[in-house]
């Protein structure tokens, strides 16, 4: 889509775009190309020597069981978090759309975790599951389970999944609710006249019509679990115990800033960029198709 009428002028548009383009070049394009460049160099931590090593950094990375483990853990973490937060949000949204009274009130009480920083969300759950004084730890102990995410990798993973999902439900809920409210009532009524009960209507009419929203949310949730959850991991588990919660973004950070492995960290950055670009392209392909039809 393009405007039919435009203003003339050569310098005005340049000035208008200058700030955005400058910041993009300095803080986005330049660092990204630096990452690309460093990913093919071997450099010591003090920058005294550098050597061009082609794709060695990548080869080392993919030969490193720690990195491959981290890949697997990230995949597990992302899919469980996405499934959990999408599922819960869908159930809540369908219920909130159903009730005649109180939709707005329920919405108010369900959406506010969106405003909580991931790191803060991590702290909230960290405290509830604190091995010595946590309320829920106490409850679990009462039920016969000794919770300790300091020592038990599974517990730690469960903790970051809970914290990440808790925060994301609100976002998904809002989109599902908006999607449900956008479905024309007449369609649902027509289905009811055609003899479909509430569950059948959901399965055959509402859920298919909601699929663009679901797809959009799926991509957003994966991106969220990949990147925005850094705060949760850093604040409550620092990747531990024994790397059990070292997801990819955390590893980029810890290898680069703590391990000072510049080439390795840059190579990981490049791989992550490829993941984001793939997800974005995938999403836009889909949106274009949706628009076309």
């Amino acid at each position: 889509m393009e405007k039919r009428v435009v203003f003339s002028g050569r310098w005005v548009p340049v000035l208008l775009l200058a700030p955005q383009v400058t910041i993009t070049l300095v803080f986005f394009i330049w660092p990204a190309s630096q990452a690309l460049y460093q990913s093919v160099l071997l450099e010591d931590a003090f920058g005294l020597s550098r050597k061009f090593v082609w794709l060695d950094n990548f080869r080392i990375l993919f030969a490193d069981p720690l990195y491959l483990d981290s890949f697997g853990r990230t995949a597990f973490f992302s899919s469980v978090t996405a499934a959990l937060s999408l599922g819960l949000a869908l159930v809540l949204a369908v219920m909130a759309d159903r009730v005649i009274k109180g939709t707005a009130l329920y919405r108010t009480f369900l959406i506010w975790p969106y405003a909580v920083a991931p790191a803060v969300a991590g702290v909230l759950w960290f405290f509830m599951f604190n091995p010595s004084i946590g309320t829920l730890t106490y409850l679990l102990r009462f039920l016969g389970y000794q919770w300790n995410h300091y020592l038990n990798g599974t517990d730690a993973m469960a903790l970051i999944i809970l914290a990440a999902s808790w925060k994301q439900v609100s976002y998904n809920f809002l989109f599902f609710l908006a999607g449900l409210q956008a479905i024309p009532r007449s369609l649902v009524e027509a289905a009811a006249i055609d003899g479909a009960g509430p569950f059948k209507r959901f399965r055959t009419i509402i859920f298919p019509l909601l699929s663009p929203t679901t797809f959009f949310l799926l991509v957003v949730n994966i991106v969220y679990a990949f990147f925005d959850t850094f705060g949760i991991v850093h604040a409550i588990t620092s990747g531990g115990p024994a790397q059990a919660t070292t997801i990819l973004v955390y590893k980029v950070y810890s290898d680069g800033f703590i391990g000072l492995d510049l080439g390795g960290s840059a190579a990981q950055s490049v791989i992550l960029m490829a993941v984001v670009i793939a997800l974005t392209v995938f999403q836009f392909r889909y949106i274009e198709r949706k628009v076309a039809y």
Binding site: P31, F227, D228, S269, M273
Partner: peptide, 11 residues
Amino acid sequence: MLPVEVRILPT
């Protein structure tokens, strides 16, 4: 496509 998390070191 370039969240800050993936290019922290060079940025």
